[in-house]
Design a protein around this nucleic acid. Structure first.
Length: 324
DNA sequence: ACCTGTCAAGTCTGG
DNA sequence: CCAGACTTGACAGGT
């Protein structure tokens, strides 16, 4: 089984390369000249996109083929204060350059909208904002020229005291989504509300791929089945996408603070999981969610490469040798 | 140069 | 009905 590793949005190794620079809404409102303020937002966005390209070049130099874009590439993009603003014409060349690079080097990229994107919400205005958020993230991927193998990964959302009704709302909204949004959606189990099994069942029902988060499953295990037991079904949700299945890994920051992400990733639980599923999956992509970002990636790959049954292919790719 | 409180957004809990 | 926690990188305003 070939395993590729990726990380989220920013690097601790590349200096001054934030892809999430912003302007607060308060500052935006203070500027008397709205047009000038919007031009300033566009300049910040351009810088964020440029820094993201620098990160992709860093990734290429280190064999990293999996990457999640910052969801804050364009500051205040979906804020009410900027209503009517369309930054895309201005940003089009930058987005194209970024997307071209990702395509040329066969990088798997994605977005992960913030937890304010909730398709289970009973509130009309929250739903509207969520749909707008998804459409804008989709639009960014389109501006980069990336096809629907670049996904927008979200959680199912809240329960509002009634999971069945909440899921019913999501279910009824799903067919109404623009197909460009729908075809990029993936669902991830969360750390409090929807367990891996519940997310899997719902993903199967909707026919969308599921991203299995091992850390979330550890802190929100539901019936408590080991992740490898769910794996054959999770993997099946990726059939027909021409993408390897993707999982998220991270480790608890501490015993007291079990949900928060630690600086680095403990190799042992992941190693166990990888050996358990190596017979099922020819390929797997792993998104590392750790405070130390790409430094955590390099450390984890190094740690795993020392283990029995693991062979290093390059700086960010391992082969898990199937044990017979 | 460095420090600290604050920041657009939602949901849940508890008062 | 409202306040606070959750979580997070970066701003804003200060020294």
């Amino acid at each position: 089984m070939l395993v590729r590793f990726g990380y989220v949005a920013m690097s601790v190794n590349v200096a001054n390369a934030s892809p999430s620079k912003t302007m607060t809404a308060t500052q935006f409102a203070k500027l008397a000249d709205r047009e000038a303020a919007l031009r300033k937002l566009e300049r910040i966005a351009e810088e964020n996109i440029h820094n993201t390209l620098r990160l992709l070049k860093h990734n290429r130099a280190h064999d990293i083929h999996v990457f999640r874009f910052s969801s804050k590439l364009i500051p205040l993009l979906t804020h009410p204060a900027t209503e009517g603003w369309d930054p895309f014409p201005h940003l089009s060349p930058s987005f194209t350059e970024l997307g071209d690079y990702a395509i040329k080097h066969a990088m798997r990229t994605s977005f992960h909208p913030d937890h304010f994107t909730v398709l289970t919400t009973p509130r009309e205005e929250v739903l509207r904002a969520s749909l707008f958020d998804l459409s804008q993230q989709t639009r960014m991927l389109e501006a980069m020229g990336l096809d629907d193998r670049s996904k927008c990964n979200i959680h199912i959302g809240g329960t509002y005291g009634d999971k069945v009704t909440a899921l019913a709302r999501f279910r009824s909204r799903f067919p109404e989504l623009p197909s460009a949004v729908r075809s990029r959606l993936t669902l991830e189990n969360d750390d409090k509300t929807y367990t891996a099994l519940e997310t899997l069942q719902f993903a199967e029902e909707l026919g969308v791929p599921m991203v299995l988060d091992l850390h979330h499953h550890q802190v929100n295990p539901g019936e408590g089945e080991p992740p490898e037991e769910l794996w054959p079904r999770v993997q099946r949700t990726w059939e027909g996408t021409s993408l390897p299945p993707k999982i998220h890994v991270s480790s608890p920051r501490s015993e007291r603070d079990i949900r928060a992400h630690a600086d680095y990733v403990e190799p042992a639980p992941l190693l166990h999981f990888l050996h358990s599923i190596a017979g099922f999956a020819p390929q797997l992509d792993i998104m590392i969610e750790a405070k130390q970002k790409d430094a955590a990636l390099f450390k984890l790959v190094d740690d795993l490469a020392r283990e029995k049954g693991i062979r290093r292919i390059d700086g960010a790719t391992l082969e898990v040798v199937r044990r017979i």
